[in-house]
């Protein structure tokens, strides 16, 4: 569902100056400015939920971080580092009991950022649906080959069940995907949303490219993770 630029400004109370400043700073991705023909020429629309959530997040965080820092927090690029099993144990959203299963599923002890996001998503999936360790290992084994190819977090993982097992499909956010209607979709993981929340919460722990920071954030770990970017 789309929202027009005028309605966006009215609904959020932001000015043109703010909107375009945030666009310049990379806080609002270029691809969210969708131009559509209108009888006055062209009108710009945005993906409604995404832009409203993003503006809410910017408004709530802009007093705490500079726009440059916010761009890094909210940007969908992949963090350039590997995570060890010790790192995984710091991440509250990863079920500690599942770490051996993830190690087995991925067949290694250090993980890419995208793989960490998958672990967070699968931990939540297990919590909600009570999937077995074997089923989680199978999902990881099925997806691990693609994790290395992914160069951004703008991907969605859809999980569906069939014959007492779970299967996954992985696709880019903007892509149109048509899944066999007979398959029962049980869970959807938005890597971009997980990434935004993860970066904010663990930015101190994992030093997400905040090169020149001289500010202190005391309550990172306690930050309320209610945002949905």
């Amino acid at each position: 569902m789309l929202i027009s630029k005028k309605d966006l400004l009215k609904e959020t109370g932001i000015s043109y100056g703010q909107l375009y400043r945030w666009k310049r700073e990379g806080l609002i991705p270029e691809e969210w400015f969708i131009k559509q023909p209108s009888f006055t020429g062209q009108e710009t629309y945005f993906p409604r939920t995404k832009i409203l959530n993003r503006i809410k997040a910017i408004q709530e965080l802009k007093d705490k971080y500079s726009l440059e820092e916010l761009a890094k927090i909210l940007s969908p690029e992949i963090a350039e580092r590997y995570f060890t099993t010790d790192d995984l144990s710091i991440i509250e959203e990863i079920d500690k009991n599942l770490i051996p299963a993830f190690v087995k599923g991925f067949g290694k002890n250090s993980f890419l950022y995208i793989e960490v996001l998958l672990m967070i998503g699968l931990s939540d999936f297990k919590k909600q649906f009570g999937a077995s360790l074997g089923q989680l290992i199978n999902i990881v084994e099925g997806l691990k080959g693609y994790c290395e190819k992914i160069k951004s977090t703008e991907y969605i993982i859809v999980l569906f069940d069939k014959s007492d097992d779970y299967y996954a499909t992985l696709y880019k956010e903007q892509a149109e995907v048509y899944i066999d209607a007979r398959l029962n979709i049980v869970h959807t993981i938005h890597l971009n949303e997980l990434s935004s929340r993860f970066k904010i919460k663990y930015r101190k722990s994992f030093n997400f490219r905040f090169d020149d920071e001289d500010y202190s954030v005391q309550d990172d770990k306690n930050m309320n993770m209610s945002y949905s970017y």
Partner: peptide, 22 residues
């Protein structure tokens, strides 16, 4: 200029389709 969007706008000697602002 096809479109201008800004909070404060002052224009002279301009041909434009749309000007939008405060």
């Amino acid at each position: 200029v096809e479109t201008i969007e800004a909070d404060k706008i002052f224009v002279e000697k301009l041909k434009a389709n749309l000007i939008s602002g405060a």
